[in-house]
């Protein structure tokens, strides 16, 4: 049986962690994702940009109390990609 190819955008530890986190919430701020993933600011910024470029998340930049605020939200395309990725992973784990 041929294994389904894994989405290269999601088959990365940090990007997968971000998308898995966003699947369970409406939207999350940069600092929340930073805390939960344990990533560095620089690496997280790069991976968020990659996810945004792939159309998997929407990144909104605004201000709160004069401080920059970055909020991330999963798109429908991101949800679909995540579901497809999970199905593919299950195929790899079947005996």
């Amino acid at each position: 049986m041929a294994f389904a190819p894994l989405d290269p955008v999601l088959h990365n530890q940090l990007r997968l962690a971000v998308v898995s986190l966003l699947v369970g919430v409406d939207k999350a701020e940069f600092n929340f994702i930073l805390e939960k993933t344990g990533a560095t600011r620089g690496n997280l910024s790069v991976q968020l940009t990659n996810l945004k470029d792939a159309g998997y998340i929407v990144v909104t930049k605004s201000f709160r109390d004069n401080y920059p605020l970055t909020t991330c939200k999963l798109t429908a395309k991101g949800v679909k990609a995540f579901e497809t990725y999970v199905e593919a992973i299950k195929g790899y784990l079947k005996p």
Binding site: H11, N12, Q13, L14, L16, A17, S20, L21, L22, V23, G24, V25, A28, F32, K36, T37, G38, A39, N43, Y85, V86, I89, Y92, L93
Partner: peptide
Amino acid sequence: MHTELTPNESLKLIESMIGQAKKSF
């Protein structure tokens, strides 16, 4: 963070992150 993931690692990571999100009330 490592970028290479085995399917098992992927699944554990997904479960862990979804668990984190569930605690975010």
